[in-house]
Design a protein around this nucleic acid. Structure first.
Length: 491
RNA sequence: CGGGGCGUAGCGUAGCCCGGUUAUCGCGCCUGCUUUGGGAGCAGGAGGUCGCAAGUUCGAAUCUUGCCGCCCCGACCA
């Protein structure tokens, strides 16, 4: 055993790091807080990206690309926005290096100071709205539905692989609309798309909700989110969709003429998900033996391991395998035949378990004699013997079963981890000893939320969209409340 | 930014307290043979600015000072 994984029980964050590193998703880099996404991890991201990209395009969005650099003055145009991001911006101040006249390498050339510093985008609202100003004059230019796949930089104090890195990859949608209602509908539509993606593709149940004022995006009127629950009982914000009102239109003076030739500011949304989703995926399903990936996103869905003695057997196996691999591939299954002779079967079994490949097929002389293969599920470790005849259909069925099964497992965990609390003692006890979401009354004020956060380290994850009205009293202050909200400790 | 930990071969480590020939062990790597149904065995081999810099000393991985980097826990955040 050359690749030991720390167990969840022993040290949950070490377990998480082990999975990322030993599962081959990413590596630490020479740059603080920045990671290298390795081919296997990037393949996972590409799969996620492709699905989302199609969903965006199917709802009328187009991709574009805006600059990495943002003039400093742009950021300061929207007051709340700069407030939120100023503390974590990387700043470009010079455009040239030169050799040190006193010897010893390169120095920043003091003569090459920029007149205006450039910020490396932490998010692109400002540069995009500055551009939209020139693109939008009339209601005929609306709606403007644009998405960009990009990297952004936020100089975080403390980073964690995938969950919070100084540079990360994401998509950011930025739309402009003629009416508030249309913009709100867009915000909600994109939230639904994110939820659909999380649940149907990542097999990760999420709660759709709206953020409290404290947790709202800097510059938004309303922030909608999907919240997921990780195996250690902590919540994770998996995606956000913001209704920006006319804040950015006003800050960047983006007006349009409506049909009556009246000038008005446009209504805006922005929405994004990031490589953080990979972290969410890892923590949602994996176990102490390694990653568990949902079949619909797994870079490899089926791995085939031959077991043989001598070239004669190998040839027989190759022949059999070639036939059904072809069929699997034609059916759209992502299959890998690992006949690399450098590693033995046992090594491969462990390796692909580590990498979370949903199904493993082993085939040896024994199986060929019976015209079967051994199929093993990654999620349950269940071993079964399957006839080669009709294998493709059964594999596809099994992949669907796994997809559903890991969703159900995650859903069951989450269901038992949304717990109501009616007293402060109960509230704290749940957070300390059970984890998960705690459903509790809150008096609706930011001050109370701050106080609760200070006392419990829990924040309001969201006010669920499907909330029912219920009279009650605030968990902390006892003041009147009309609905419960979800609290949790979060990543 | 506060607290803790760690920097020795690609990875993981011993040695450091108490300075002294050629820096330990495992994995991995290379060559050969035997192996192959749960991380193979044997034999041989390659691989090191001991994080960096200065100091103490006849002599520093080991002692002193300074610096750098990374990880973990917190506060900030996706």
């Amino acid at each position: 055993m050359s690749k030991e994984i720390t167990s969840r029980e022993q040290d949950y964050s070490q377990w998480y790091n082990d999975l990322i590193i030993k599962g081959g998703l990413a590596d630490y880099s020479a740059v603080r807080g920045c990671m290298v996404i390795k081919p296997y991890g990037f393949a996972l991201w590409e799969n996620m990206r492709d699905v989302l990209d199609k969903m965006f395009k199917d709802t009328g969005h187009q991709n574009a690309y805006f600059p990495l650099f943002i003039p400093k003055s742009f950021l300061s145009k929207e007051a709340a926005h700069i407030e939120g991001f100023a503390k974590e911006c990387a700043v470009v101040t010079h455009y040239r290096l030169k050799t040190d006249p006193d010897g010893g390498g390169l120095i920043v050339d003091p003569d090459a100071k920029l007149e205006e510093e450039l910020i490396i985008r932490p998010t692109s609202e400002t540069i995009i709205w500055n551009t939209y100003k020139t693109w939008i004059q009339s209601y005929r230019d609306l709606p403007l539905l644009i998405n960009q796949w990009a990297n952004v930089v936020r100089w975080e104090m403390r980073t964690r692989l995938f969950l919070r890195t100084a540079e990360f990859l994401w998509q950011e949608g930025h739309t402009a609309h003629a009416t508030a209602n249309e913009a709100i509908a867009e915000t909600r539509q994109m939230l639904d798309i994110y939820a659909e993606f999380a649940e149907s593709w990542m097999a990760m149940p999420v709660i759709k909700g709206v953020k409290s004022i404290n947790e709202r995006f800097a510059g938004a009127v309303d922030t909608y989110c999907i919240e997921a629950l990780m195996q250690d009982g902590k919540a994770l914000q998996a995606g956000t969709s913001h209704f920006l009102g006319q804040n950015f239109a006003k800050a960047f003076d983006v007006k349009f003429s409506d049909k009556e030739n009246k000038l008005d500011y446009v209504w805006a949304t922005s929405w994004g998900v990031s490589t953080r989703l990979i972290g969410a995926l890892v923590m949602a399903h994996s176990d102490d033996d390694g990653l568990v990936l949902p079949p619909k996103l797994a870079p490899i869905q089926v791995v085939i391991v031959p077991i043989f003695k001598g070239d004669d057997q190998k040839q027989l196996i190759d022949e059999k395998v070639r036939a059904f691999v072809k069929e699997l591939k034609q059916a759209g299954v992502k299959v890998k035949y690992d006949d690399n002779e450098n590693n033995r079967p046992g090594w491969k079994f462990a390796e692909y378990e580590m990498k979370g490949v949903p199904l493993r097929i082993a085939i040896g002389a024994r199986d060929i004699a019976n015209n079967v293969v051994e199929v093993v599920r990654r999620d349950t470790k269940e071993k079964m013997s399957m006839p080669i005849e009709g294998l493709t259909v059964n594999i596809i069925k099994l992949l669907d079963t796994i997809q559903e099964s890991i969703y159900n497992k995650a859903f069951a965990y989450r269901s038992t981890h949304i717990t109501p609390a009616d007293t402060w003692e109960e509230f704290m006890d749940l957070l300390d000893n059970k984890g998960g979401f705690v459903s509790a009354h809150w008096d609706g004020t930011p001050e109370t939320e701050d106080k609760i956060k200070e006392l419990s380290k829990a924040t309001i994850r969201c006010i669920p969209l499907n909330n029912v009205e219920e009279a009650g009293s605030c968990i902390l202050t006892g003041n009147n409340s009309t609905e419960r909200v979800l609290f949790a400790r979060a990543y």
